[in-house]
Design a protein around this nucleic acid. Sequence first.
RNA 1: GGUCGAGUAGCUCAGUCGGCAGAGCACACGCCUGAAAAGCGUGGGGUCACCGGAUCGACGCCGGUCUCGACCA
Length: 306
Amino acid sequence: MTSGPLVILGSTASGKSDVAMALARLHPEAELIAVDAMQVYSGMDIGTAKPSWDDRAAVQHHCLDLVDVADDFTVTHFAQVAREAIAVIESRNGCPVLVAGTGLYLRSVTDPMVVPGRWPEVHAELEARLEVAGVESLHDQLVALDPVAAARMEPNNARRVVRALEVVLGSGRLFSSFGPGLDTYPPIRFEQFGLRWPRPILTDRIARRVHRMIADGLVAEVETLARGPISRTARQALGYKELFDHLDGVCSLDAAIETIITRTRQFAVRQERWFRRDPRIRWIDIDDDPVATALPVLELAWQSWN
RNA sequence: GGUCGAGUAGCUCAGUCGGCAGAGCACACGCCUGAAAAGCGUGGGGUCACCGGAUCGACGCCGGUCUCGACCA
């Protein structure tokens, strides 16, 4: 059986970074690629649980700090950078190991995804129509133009309806004609391992981690960001948007922390739901020490890979 | 001790004239193609504090009990 680069994936607080670091320390040729929609922002370190500077000095990391917090960021940009990183690592006989928490970003790297282009003027016009005419009107038009795409989304999901119409009107092609969709899982060269926890234990880990982030100075980090411009993409990061609210006087610090914990828990569940649909993932069940449990499994895979 | 108010889903609370028990959040399940830590859909869940009464019929009306809060003593 041929196998390719390893992917270590899991929800937030699943311990995937620790496991990846432990694996990389055993294999000097390993280089880590962070597949994470928020760790691409420089200046957002504590709240995104970015690898420490010590870890980054010990093991080569990629796809961290790609852009300034003032910039928007997209899947396509990520896919491009990550694919380049993989190519560079392999060209010097290194071994890329993807550490993934953002499902869509991971698919954009591992799968042959064709993401349609952008048509900003069409998009702006659709947003304007959304204001006056409402989602139903736009969805009706999508049903008429691209029934397949329309059937794949909730009529109420304005963001997706607008995007699909943007592509149809802008490209002259059907939105549904771009790639097979996310619900097909073709064979790929990546070997994916998922870290899976009993939910109550993960919930507890999340709460403890949020409190540790606060103790580590997350509020000060957010205060620093609040002084400068920040993109809508970065602004919505968990732990940041709630503390922006707190700093604006919307809620107390304790209330903000409770909200962060709740939303992070919900996010972790959404990550699990995304990943568990992918039949290509091999799951490692953990209920205590992620490194001790997962490392032997990954070592086996590593041996058959190299 | 007295007066008034409150008690309804895990939480915060709506519930009109007595006529099938509701919302938001939480939770569970699902979706996802240039914002994805984003955006959306579906669902489960009730001794309407308790006991009794009048009524064809009570969360609602009458009597009593308990708990909480405010005020008065």
